[in-house]
Computed example of a mutant assay.
Amino acid sequence: MATTGAEPAVSNASPLPELAKVRRYEAAGFRAWPAAAVHYDGTWLVRLTAGHPAKRLNSVNPLDPGDVVNIGERIARAARRFDAYGRPLTFRMSPLSGVALSRHLDAEGWSVFSESLVMRAPLDDAAIAEAMDQIPLKDMGRFIGAALKVHGSDASLRPGLSEILGSIQPEAGLFVVEQDEEPLATAICVHDGDLAGLFEIATDAAHRGKGHGRRIVLSSLKWARLRGAREAWLQVEADNEAALGLYRSIGFSEIYRYHYRRPPEA
């Protein structure tokens, strides 16, 4: 549920993370899940994607807590860009956003919603000891069809998802667990130097609780480990208890959190 004003902006009991560490994972996330259009206003990174409605791809991402000059004017400029794309003005607030901007948005009555955790795990031989060898799909169309089915997404998202996957610059592995040619689970693993980022992990609703999610995560990480990755990371919504339980059992721990904000409706 959205919150406003004096209510807590985020429920984060963890110590404040080092900003250099946050910047590293934020940059990896932008490379691994690229927006169609990118603009900078100072150190605010504006990401917009006409073909896909995901908040990560359609948000303002402040990257320096000290960049607080002319906040109102810059918000107005961002609003015009979002309006041109037919997207609601959305800010993605990580620890890089800073207190001053949060207070400004509080004062303007912006809502807070959709908190997520960024988690990491060391990627060594022990971490992937139980992983099965799995070769990622080369057929992007087949993977997209499987991902849309597993996520329960509308087929209209196919062109947008195809554009995103085709724009990923680091090496990306597309993984699917199938049974009788029916997709049960999907995941994307982006190998970026010593990092392995996991994205779009999902299990078909009718087949959850059977270990498919664990299998596909470990197989993806083994693939990245064999290519030189030494650390795994991912993003997960804070209220997804099933996913959090899975990731923690594999060895992931929280680094920092982020959430989204939108202005009050006119």
Rank of each mutant, 00 (worst) to 15 (best):
164 I>V: 15
132 M>K: 13
215 R>V: 05
244 L>D: 07
130 E>D: 14
190 V>K: 02
3 T>L: 14
143 F>M: 05
232 A>H: 08
222 K>C: 06
224 A>F: 09
205 A>N: 10
245 G>I: 06
128 I>Q: 04
155 A>E: 15
12 N>L: 08
27 A>C: 05
104 H>V: 13
228 G>Y: 13
113 F>D: 09
189 C>W: 03
10 V>L: 15
225 R>W: 14
108 E>P: 00
95 P>D: 05
259 H>S: 09
101 L>E: 06
79 A>I: 03
79 A>E: 14
139 D>P: 02
246 L>H: 03
31 R>C: 09
100 A>N: 05
238 A>E: 12
214 R>T: 08
240 N>D: 11
204 D>P: 03
119 M>S: 05
203 T>D: 03
7 E>R: 15
248 R>M: 06
112 V>H: 12
223 W>E: 02
242 A>E: 12
264 P>F: 03
2 A>K: 13
196 A>D: 05
157 L>I: 02
142 R>M: 07
200 E>V: 05
182 E>C: 08
259 H>F: 15
41 D>M: 10
69 V>Y: 00
101 L>Q: 09
30 F>M: 07
103 R>E: 15
39 H>Y: 09
148 L>A: 11
207 H>F: 15
185 A>P: 09
107 A>R: 13
256 Y>W: 14
242 A>Q: 12
220 S>E: 10
214 R>G: 12
93 M>Y: 03
217 V>P: 04
130 E>S: 15
193 G>R: 08
177 V>P: 02
243 A>F: 06
131 A>P: 01
198 L>R: 04
171 E>Q: 13
9 A>C: 14
130 E>C: 07
14 S>C: 10
19 L>C: 10
104 H>G: 00
254 E>D: 14
38 V>C: 09
7 E>P: 01
221 L>G: 03
103 R>P: 01
183 P>N: 07
18 E>G: 13
247 Y>W: 08
119 M>T: 03
57 L>E: 09
118 V>A: 11
149 K>D: 14
227 R>H: 13
241 E>K: 11
219 S>H: 09
261 R>W: 05
93 M>L: 15
42 G>S: 04
230 R>E: 11
8 P>Q: 09
157 L>M: 10
201 I>W: 01
242 A>F: 03
65 P>R: 12
42 G>T: 08
167 S>N: 12
98 G>I: 07
262 R>I: 06
94 S>C: 04
253 S>F: 09
170 P>C: 07
233 W>V: 01
20 A>F: 00
85 Y>G: 02
29 G>Q: 03
227 R>G: 15
120 R>V: 15
209 G>S: 06
218 L>K: 14
61 N>G: 02
143 F>N: 04
5 G>P: 02
19 L>H: 05
